[in-house]
Simulated assay, not measured.
Amino acid sequence: MSSDTQAVESRLRITEIFYSLQGESSFVGLPTVFIRLTGCPLRCGYCDTAYAFSGGEWMQISEIVRQIKQYKTTTVCVTGGEPLAQRCSGDLLKQLCDEGYQVSIETSGSIDISSVDSRVVKVMDIKTPGSGEESKNRYENIQHLTQKDEVKFVLCDREDYEWSKEVINKYKLSEKAQILFSPVHDGVVPADLADWIISDQLNVRFQFQLHKFLWDNEPGR
């Protein structure tokens, strides 16, 4: 392998690197460095990061690591777009773990997660019918989840809620990972979703997207 090829393989296209509070998952509220990779093969109807579909800046993994070291936190989230759409994202995840960071990745569930470093917490979506991308779910990924990983359902309406319950039962998800139910911002009334979960006694974690309430989803927040 030539040195030129090695240089290409050690870089990623980055939309932004920023420091904020984690807005969701079991890490909610923790000061976190976010590394947002550019590009996504999905087009969910509620997507709030369409600005990451294209553009970005090519960066060497070593430069990415240097940038995040300026922040006084050990928690790092690799997100997108869809971070696994870039071939070298696995190299970044491994490097971050080797550096001693507590690393999570936010992924759409449409791309194979089997090669993700076992030290990384995988926060994986299962796309509901309301997303418009239900057909892209890669259910084979479920076998690669562990109890430290998390499965997220973003719910647009009551139909999405009932559909998600069926998926949880079909794949015995409660035995495989933590489950997150998140209402679409300005969609499902959060109190209604909370009532449904309590009424059905579901073993799931209800979550808001904290950053949207604090900063109205400003890029880089």
Rank of each mutant, 00 (worst) to 15 (best):
M1L: 00
A7S: 09
Y19N: 10
S20W: 14
Q22N: 03
G23L: 03
G23R: 04
S25W: 12
G29V: 04
P31L: 01
F34C: 15
I35N: 07
T38I: 05
P41R: 00
T49K: 01
F53H: 07
G56M: 11
Q67V: 05
Q67P: 04
I68G: 06
Y71D: 06
T73M: 07
V78S: 05
T79A: 06
T79I: 07
G81M: 08
Q86V: 01
G90W: 10
C97N: 12
E99L: 11
Q102F: 15
E106V: 08
E106K: 05
T107R: 00
S108G: 05
S108V: 03
S108H: 00
D112L: 06
S114L: 08
S115R: 08
D117Q: 11
S118W: 03
R119W: 03
R119G: 09
V121A: 03
V121H: 10
V123Y: 10
M124I: 02
D125C: 08
T128W: 07
P129F: 08
S135N: 07
K136A: 00
N137L: 05
Y139S: 00
Y139F: 15
Y139H: 13
I142V: 14
H144Q: 13
V151S: 08
K152M: 05
L155A: 02
D157Y: 02
E159I: 04
D160R: 04
Y161N: 12
Y161K: 05
S164F: 11
K170C: 02
K172L: 01
Q178T: 06
I179D: 04
I179T: 01
I179M: 09
F181E: 01
H185E: 10
H185M: 09
G187T: 01
V188G: 00
A194I: 03
D195W: 13
I198Y: 14
S199A: 06
N203V: 03
R205A: 08
Q209I: 04
Q209Y: 06
H211Q: 09
K212D: 00
K212G: 02
W215V: 01
